[in-house]
């Protein structure tokens, strides 16, 4: 634990800002609904698009609901869904990449060609088609987001793993008679964790944007629940007045993605600085 604290202290300023934002949003995702002053769907204000007041810190939305409460509850969908999908995409992509790296060209070639094919499918269109076909649900959104980003992660992880598989210590392990599983997990994987973490952060940001985009089109998380993207969409009519109801979720998306980006850049940098 002290170790993690020391490493956080060693981050450059931008990294510290990123870390603070990430911790803030994780906290909101975890505890937000408990802190929300009003129920998500309750009509509590007399007016729509109210400015902020002591009762409604972020004003009210297009139906007169409390924006702060909706934001605190909605962040959970965005953060949780994106984190789960990024995790799923990264583990699947990396597992396939390791298989390709230790499996030789007979495994590597077809797998890589298949991934090249997947990567050429435009992700938004693909999601639109699936949502149109099956109807939107949290489970489907998770799968779509994960599936879309497997090939990207695979490519990066494979490039890393194939290089590492040529290292002398891997050759030593092979000459010792080690099985492929051991080589992949014990010898190769530990040396790619750093870049993979950075990649995970990047996928997370992409997925936040993809989900927000889908929600904005009305295809994401369905009412009365709302993620940050749907909050922006449903309040679109307040854009002309510059209502807080639309600014707040937009700023939330921005700070979340910028925060994650700053943090991974800083981690990637200090990882390189340590040298190998």
């Amino acid at each position: 634990m002290g170790n993690a604290f020391q490493r956080a202290k060693a981050l450059p300023l931008s990294g510290k800002v990123g870390l603070a934002l990430v911790i803030f949003w994780l906290a909101v995702a975890l505890f937000g609904p408990m802190l929300a002053p009003y129920p998500v769907g309750a009509f509590v204000a007399y007016d729509v698009f109210d400015a902020q007041s002591a009762k409604h810190w972020l004003g009210s939305d297009y139906l007169g609901r409390d924006v702060l409460s909706r934001l605190l509850s909605g962040a959970r969908y965005t953060v949780g869904l994106a984190a789960a999908a990024a995790l799923l995409a990264s583990t699947t992509g990396t597992a396939l990449a390791l298989t390709a790296a230790v499996g030789g060209s007979k495994v590597d070639e077809p797998l890589s060609r298949f991934m090249d094919m997947l990567i050429s499918i435009p992700s938004k269109i693909f999601s639109l088609v699936l949502v149109a076909a099956f109807g939107s649900s949290l489970g489907l959104l998770l799968l779509i987001a994960a599936f879309t980003y497997v090939p990207g992660n695979y490519r990066i992880a494979r490039a890393l793993a194939v290089n590492l598989a040529q290292m002398d210590y891997v050759q030593v392990a092979r000459a010792r008679g080690e099985g492929r599983f051991h080589i992949a997990i014990a010898e190769i994987l530990p040396n790619m964790i750093h870049p993979l973490l950075a990649d995970f952060g990047l996928r997370f940001v992409f997925i936040v944007l993809l989900l927000s985009g889908l929600s904005f089109l009305g295809l994401g998380v369905q009412p009365p629940d709302a993620d940050l993207g749907s909050l922006v969409r449903e309040n679109i009519s307040g854009l002309g007045e510059g209502a807080l109801a639309i600014l707040a979720p937009a700023v939330a998306i921005a700070t979340l993605t910028v925060g994650v980006n700053l943090l991974i850049d800083a981690i990637g940098f200090s990882g390189k600085g340590k040298g190998r």
Binding site: M167, D168, Y169, Q171, V172, E187, P190, N191, R276
Partner: peptide
């Protein structure tokens, strides 16, 4: 191996 720097897993 020749080069202990690369022969040992960092």
């Amino acid at each position: 191996f020749q080069n202990a720097d690369t022969a040992l897993n960092p």
